[in-house]
Design a binder for these strands. Structure first.
Lengths: 255, 255
DNA sequence: TGCCCTTAAATGTAATACAATATTAGATTA
DNA sequence: TAATCTAATATTGTATTACATTTAAGGGCA
């Protein structure tokens, strides 16, 4: 056997039992969580790694496919190619959530409530930590939204408006400067946007813009608690409207 | 070539260009999101699928490794083995988040704030939807925690207490009956538990138990807003103590 | 200097063979 | 008859070899 002639170069343990690829995956995962691997770091080529682990190129490939799918490594082809520890990518995580939500069969209602959890807290943090770049970005999006809401509706207007509105929400969450919240919101957005895209009429659009503006005003005023409560109210109204088509009378037109 | 002699059985498209495995992955992902695949469904064996897609067993394996790592399929060995659409699994998703948080390098402070977002909202929902099974489970955990807090400290007591306390938090989130929140909390717990395990002394333990009891009392009373606010306060105190070792004087001993 | 061509290093794909594993069904035994 | 061992079989796991494809680096030439 070719690989038995080669001594392990790095500190990897030769594997046996279970399946080889799973053991390799576990070792590399463990090394990641132990802080022994940093994003961008090169691990070598398939063949090198296979020799270091003492397995065939096949088994190593299996392991690398799993690690790549989990977003732990990138694999590059060609000269200077090989295996590299990946950089973080919220999109990939959003993907994982979308898959699980689909397989578990989570309801739209549950998604809305999760959105409320993330976004209400993010709003509170945004009010405390708003940077000037955030403020500019949010105002720019608001201006764009205003223009769409004021102009006559075309066929593709609802889609465009929803997409822009979700970007406003996302910008707001980004203004919280909390990457854990940002990652989780991106995951939710991936699943929520198609739902929101349905019910956007001209009147709804104008109401949404007014709502966004009111929330932003309180954030800029540094009124964390007020911004939080307002966002909470607004999202519950939206949730109710999306789920039942109706709006609780005591919460109507709060913003 | 062996595979060109076989006609595609299902509606899969023969692949070409990009990489074969990636195209296969995309087709199966798309089929999942289009609702054409249901959990538990059998897709056939590696060889069958390879023939249906018109590729070698290798390429099919690459694709299946990726799909398995993404949690979309399970692969079983032996007679009656093969490829099956997986059932949802929050743990797998928690894993994905943990990996991304590690790669992105999210700070402990960000993690705490994300925990606050999820758990505060979950507490509110729990107060509205508490089932008797939830109540019993929470009380059982509380009793166990009480016993540990009252007894003298051993070397392994802090670990045990932290683990149990996190299970209380998790049970509380589960009482919200929102699977999106549950999945996200499990992801956070995976990363947070090691952090909490450090600073647990006897005095802290007794304070934590009292805090848990107070929150649970308001949940059982159906006081959603009160429970939410109390949980918010408590978590901010915990956050401050974990991050700085100190506690803001105006929030000390609130519960 | 700037472009193109060659070369080399790496993954992607294929085909084959055998090992390990798990299920099924049949034979054997109490 | 019922339980248990055993052999056959189907499927993934692993290994090996070979070639195709992709990508970057370097050298030659205008």
């Amino acid at each position: 056997m070719a690989q038995s002639a080669v001594k392990p170069k790095a500190g990897w343990q030769p594997v046996r039992g279970e399946t080889l690829s799973r053991r390799i995956v576990r070792q590399i995962r463990a090394a990641l969580f132990a802080g022994e691997l940093t994003p961008g770091q090169a691990l070598g080529s398939e063949l090198q790694l296979a020799q270091e682990f003492g397995v065939s190129r096949m088994a190593m490939r299996d392991a690398l496919r799993s690690l790549a799918a989990a977003g732990i490594v990138n694999i590059r082809v060609g000269k200077r190619g090989g295996v590299f520890i990946a950089h973080g990518d919220p999109e990939r995580f959003a993907d994982a959530l979308a898959i699980q939500l689909k397989l578990i069969g989570v309801s739209v209602e549950e998604m809305f409530d999760a959105q409320i959890a993330i976004e209400v807290t993010a709003t509170e943090f945004a009010a405390r930590r708003l940077a000037s770049a955030d403020r500019e970005r949010l105002h720019a999006l608001l201006t764009e939204l205003d223009a769409i809401a004021a102009s006559p509706m075309h066929a593709e207007t609802p889609l465009r408006f929803t997409e822009l509105s979700m970007r406003f929400h996302e910008a707001l969450v980004e203004a919280s400067h909390n990457r854990a919240l940002i990652a989780q919101f991106k995951a939710l957005r991936f699943v929520l946007e198609p739902v929101y895209a349905r019910r956007t009429t001209g009147e709804v659009a104008r109401r949404v813009v007014a709502s966004h503006r009111a929330v932003l005003a309180r954030i800029e005023a540094g009124d964390a608690e007020g911004a939080r409560q307002l966002m909470h109210q607004r999202l519950q109204v939206v949730r109710a409207r999306q789920l039942t088509g109706a709006v609780p009378t005591d919460e109507r037109d709060m913003a």
